[in-house]
């Protein structure tokens, strides 16, 4: 067990930004942390990286209880390295950037040189060794920051949105690199992202944070809507002023809702749409995620439907097909 977390909270003023009841994070695995902006992802990552203190709760790291005192945290930081969304490289050469953490760990110059060359090789930046680090592009900076973390052989690398500030070419390189780090070096990885596909592609486990709380559902089909009371048991929600959806509960005003993509029912295409929450749309994307098939449907707004692989083989939906589907009330979760 890498981390064992219980009743963890982080409060800024009167605002609770993190409230995690319990969570176990396993060693040598990749975890994706999904969630909208302001959901507490970065705060959580900072606490896991021992760079921020929780307001309350317990954290165990490698079965040892963590005492959030500066004197106790500094040795732990030598085992956990965080790479920021926009990483900072010191205004010196790439080589010296990588050397910094190694020298702190009192590693000899000769061994430093070997480790640095190996780390830069892994990220494909060895020829930049003597380049001024602060003049690199966004993608190169991200790769050097990963090499700097990698050179320290930590137990865990925490990456805050590792691909958000780089071009598509570098995004692919960074994703492959993260996978390689986990496969070859057996380093645990925890990264935040907004991209569900990226999370599914890369991570062994996906965690979803919303308003600081861990959710069991995925990040797909998260919508802001305006609700108006329909009857005692249901409300009518308007999403993006176009799609109307009947949701359980007596609600009024602005709400956020999430539709579980695995609980959406696919209807026979030829059948006439009828009943509550029935929609029709064109399939625009089909991807494989683990044992499931993820289908993107454009139906005025973009819905994600996830179906088992055998169901997909039976139905054989294709990109461009028109698909009818129903969103049952039980698949809708009101968030606020």
């Amino acid at each position: 067990m890498l981390y064992l977390i219980s009743r963890l909270t982080k409060v800024y003023g009167s605002r609770t930004v993190l409230d995690i009841e319990s969570l176990e994070i396993m060693e040598k695995k990749i975890y994706a942390l999904l969630g909208p902006n302001g959901s507490g992802k970065t705060t959580f990552l900072k606490i896991l990286g021992f760079l921020d203190l929780p307001t309350s709760g317990n954290v165990q790291y490698c079965t040892r209880p963590v005492r959030f005192l500066e004197s106790q945290l500094q040795p732990l930081r030598k085992e956990v390295v965080m790479v920021n969304q926009h990483p900072i490289l010191f205004t010196t050469t790439v080589y010296r950037n990588l050397e910094f953490g190694l020298r702190i760990r009192k590693i000899s110059k000769k061994k430093c040189a070997y480790i640095i060359d190996e780390a830069l090789d892994m990220v494909g930046m060895r020829h930049f060794s003597q380049a001024p680090a602060h003049r690199l592009s966004g993608g190169e900076t991200q790769r050097v920051a990963l090499a700097r973390a990698l050179a320290l052989s930590p137990q865990v690398i925490l990456c805050d949105e590792p691909t958000s500030s780089v071009d598509p070419e570098n995004q692919g390189a960074i994703i492959n690199l993260l996978r390689q780090i986990n496969d070859e070096k057996q380093i645990s990885l925890i990264f935040t992202t907004h991209n569900q596909s990226q999370a599914s592609m890369l991570a062994h486990h996906t965690l979803f944070l919303d308003h600081g709380k861990l959710g069991t559902t995925s990040y797909d089909n998260l919508f802001a809507a305006v609700a108006s009371r329909k009857d005692e048991n249901s409300s009518l929600c308007k999403i993006q002023n176009t799609v109307e959806l009947v949701v359980p509960g007596d609600r009024d005003g602005e709400i956020r809702l999430m539709i579980d993509p695995e609980k959406i029912d696919i209807l026979e295409t030829r059948k006439k749409d009828h009943g509550e929450n029935c929609f029709r749309g064109n399939i625009v994307q089909i991807t494989k995620e683990g044992g499931k098939i993820r289908i993107g449907v454009d139906s005025e707004i973009y819905f994600i439907i996830r179906m088992p692989a055998d169901d997909y083989t039976r139905r054989k939906p294709m990109v461009g097909d028109n698909m009818a589907f129903r969103i049952p009330r039980k698949s809708i979760k009101l968030l606020s």
Partner: peptide, 8 residues
């Protein structure tokens, strides 16, 4: 923060 996460 970067220096700290690198073990400083």
């Amino acid at each position: 923060k970067t220096a700290m996460t690198l073990g400083a």
